[in-house]
Design a protein around this nucleic acid. Structure first.
Lengths: 328, 328
DNA sequence: GTGAAAGCGCTAACAT
DNA sequence: ATGTTAGCGCTTTCAC
């Protein structure tokens, strides 16, 4: 920067000012500075800037995994909005391991971020104390219904499970099953199960639970379904923890010659691209993947800009949409 | 840090030393410092550290999108290895927009990163000049066959296309088609097409090209396939730019009653989880998603640790595996 | 093994 | 509108 200043024949602080608020520098010097920047190929040092201003343009985001299309789509919209506002995302993934979250929070906090986005409400005691002490803006996303640390953007997974149950009950199904990946670690899949089960049981029906443990979800979904139907031939409807599992189940039905939805109704979760093209088209739940990203960015930006007037809205329930097609 | 020093009754520089190389501090003081850190909940300021040492533990990664399972799996393995070595990833996505890459490079370079990972060989002139000037370690991944800026980890998409062509030719197919998403922007899908077409044409066959342009890949794959078969009923085999497109094509064949592979052979790309469960199981290409991440991390770490002895290996062709199942 | 001192590249008062 | 000055919170010589 001092090189730029020298070449443009101004003081370093004028260069700094020009970089941050160009219109507060006279046109003549502004042009000189700009041409010096271009000539030298100068790139400002973000760390030095962050240190000096004791703020950073960093926003941390912690998700269970970036390989699920749910989260990667949320991340992509989030990053788009925040980058446009000049922020840099620091992404960490826990791989559904609660103990890793604390480590990631620590690592992100050491960057002195302006904000932090977490997935869900479940955090270790230590994490919570780190966060409350650090006093930064926090959004917990992809869930809704608990008090939360600060701001919340998501939907209730229990309600989602209940919605699916009510739909199936309405269509006359009674004996149901829930097929899940990652059941013991994915709290939100768990919640969907609970909402589903409670509603089904309340209506006099039954719910069998099966968890996938292998590596290939689609293949194992088929295998587990075969076993399930063998043990519980009375099963009439199946709610899956995601669309890939549901696809596996549908393909298995085809192999077995079980008609959908007559022999077995199937409902997915995710409304992934392919669900409209399966045979038959799949009934599924659409979570607000992109909306979560957009609203999270909006809440964060509002807070960081310090518009206290709009600061009252801090909890957003985006709900889910049940996409009824022909598989149920 | 000075607070910690005060509480532990040592100098700040001893605390700093303890944090970086604990064994060079006496046990007694080390313990005092650690307890002071715990008591105060002290977190080091990474930016200050980076500024003072004029190095950073940052490694930038630029991918077209994080929503493709290809890239997100590579990212996940890459981040795992690099985080374990103490590095922080800064992820940017271009959304297949070449002009955004330059902006991202600029933004990442301003963090003074230790290394940078790019996807493919195609960069603007300005980007290249920024990179060569910055003199950091660079890995271009997910492609192979060009000289590259520094290190290269990937595979040849042209060879991949040729492999698929040879497999189909061997099985007696002559009239083929290539169905692609994002064809005009995804250089690597383009290369696969070229490798495929050249081999097919060289053997006396023909290749029709169709590009998906809508939002739903699976649905549009079906639609385009229907039109294609109507216009070119002689088509015997189809190579798709990814597994989702291939799934859409397979589902369309089912709807139309076209048997696979008798009426139409289908080959995907990606070897996604579900491809083993389709009806029939899908022939597809397995790109080395995770291996790319691992080797990229390895090369980068070797370079950053300055082991000049092992520094000779800078170009790795990981190849692809053709997974022959029953759809071809 | 430990501490004092200088400085990393900026920003933020403040004075002009 | 511009320049001077004093840090931001660390790391890194270099003495001791």
């Amino acid at each position: 920067m001092s090189e730029v200043a020298q070449l443009a024949d101004v003081s370093p602080s004028t260069v700094s000012l020009y970089l941050r608020r160009p219109d507060e520098v006279s046109t003549r010097r502004g042009e000189r500075i700009q041409s010096a920047i271009d000539k030298l190929g100068y790139l400002p040092n973000t760390m030095a800037g962050g240190l000096a201003s004791s703020r950073s343009n960093i926003i941390g985001v912690i998700v269970p995994t970036i390989t699920f299309s749910f989260f990667s789509e949320t991340l992509e919209t989030l990053e788009k909005s925040l980058r446009a506002a000049g922020y840099q995302l620091l992404i960490g993934n826990t791989e559904f391991d609660a103990s890793r979250e604390e480590e990631l929070i620590r690592s992100i906090l050491s960057w002195n971020p302006s904000g932090l986005v977490l997935t869900g409400f479940s955090h270790s005691r230590k994490s919570v104390s780190l966060l409350t002490k650090s006093d930064i803006s926090i959004v917990e996303m992809w869930d809704y219904g608990q008090e939360g640390l600060d701001m919340v953007v998501g939907f209730s997974h229990r309600t989602c499970g209940r919605l699916v149950a009510e739909h199936l009950i309405r269509n006359g199904y009674q004996n149901m099953a829930f097929l899940s990946t990652n059941f013991h670690r994915d709290i939100r899949a768990n919640e969907r199960y609970l909402g589903f089960r409670d509603a089904v049981v309340a209506s006099g029906g039954s719910v069998e639970l099966r968890e996938l443990v292998g590596r290939s979800n689609t293949a194992e979904a088929g295998k587990l379904l075969r076993i399930l139907i063998n043990e519980h031939p009375e099963t009439q409807a199946l709610f899956c923890s995601n669309d890939m599992v549901a696809l596996g189940a549908m393909l298995e039905c085809q192999r077995q010659g079980w008609s959908i939805p007559e022999r077995l109704a199937i409902v997915g979760f995710g409304n992934q691209d392919f669900t409209g093209s399966t045979l038959p088209p799949m009934t599924t739940v659409e979570p607000p993947r992109q909306e979560i990203g957009n609203h999270t960015a909006r809440l964060l930006l509002t807070r960081l800009r310090g518009n206290d007037s709009t600061n009252t809205e801090t909890r957003i329930d985006l709900g889910v949409r049940l996409i009824v097609r022909e598989s149920s």
